Simulated assay, not measured.
Amino acid sequence: MGDIYKALADPTRRVLLDELMDRDEQTLFELCSRLAMKHDLTPSRQAVSQHLDVLESAGLVRTERRGRYKLHTIDTTPLEEISMRWPPRRGTP
């Protein structure tokens, strides 16, 4: 579970996850473009690729090759572990 926290600790990785929640199955080029246009972030393609590798290692992103394209998809399943570890208390505001 430590990998999930490491993956979520970086603000750029959180933005990448937000972008994949907004629209799944994006290429590296599409994600880099969205970071630049919507968030005024301009990391190199290599840096974005490394961020995606960390997210994939944590199980938060899956990849699929279609022809010459590598598509990135969000997987929120690992986040369920967090809610199971600390469930909300009943009766507290």
Rank of each mutant, 00 (worst) to 15 (best):
F29Q: 09
G59D: 02
R65F: 02
P78A: 10
L60I: 04
D40M: 09
K70C: 07
D75G: 00
R66N: 07
L28K: 12
T27D: 13
L20S: 04
P78Q: 08
E80A: 15
M37G: 02
Q50N: 12
E81F: 15
E25P: 02
R34G: 01
V48L: 10
F29Y: 08
D24C: 07
D40P: 01
V48H: 05
P43Y: 11
Q26T: 04
R62V: 01
R62Q: 08
R89V: 11
L79S: 09
R34I: 05
V54C: 03
P43T: 12
H51G: 00
H72W: 07
Q26I: 06
E56P: 00
F29V: 08
V54W: 00
T42V: 12
T76K: 07
H72E: 02
H72S: 05
D75Q: 06
L71D: 03
P78V: 09
S57Q: 13
T42M: 09
P78S: 08
L71Y: 12
R90K: 12
L31A: 00
R65M: 08
L41R: 14
K70S: 03
P88L: 11
V48M: 10
D24R: 14
H72G: 01
F29L: 04
P87S: 05
R23W: 10
Q50P: 01
S44V: 09
T77I: 05
T77Q: 11
T73S: 09
E19Q: 13
V48A: 07
R65G: 00
V54A: 06
V48D: 05
K70A: 05
T42D: 05
V61N: 03
T27E: 14
E64D: 02
R65W: 00
T77P: 02
T27P: 13
E80S: 14
D53F: 06
T77K: 11
R34H: 09
L71S: 02
S83G: 14
S33H: 13
R68G: 10
G91R: 10
M21G: 09
S44M: 08
R68F: 10
P88R: 12
A36F: 00
S33G: 10
S83L: 15
M84I: 10
E80H: 11
E80Y: 12
L71H: 06
M21Q: 08
L31V: 02
L35D: 04
G91K: 07
T27V: 14
R68K: 14
Q26K: 15
R45W: 04
A36C: 01
G91I: 01
L41G: 02
G67K: 06
L52I: 09
W86V: 14
L35H: 05
S83P: 08
Q46D: 09
R65V: 11
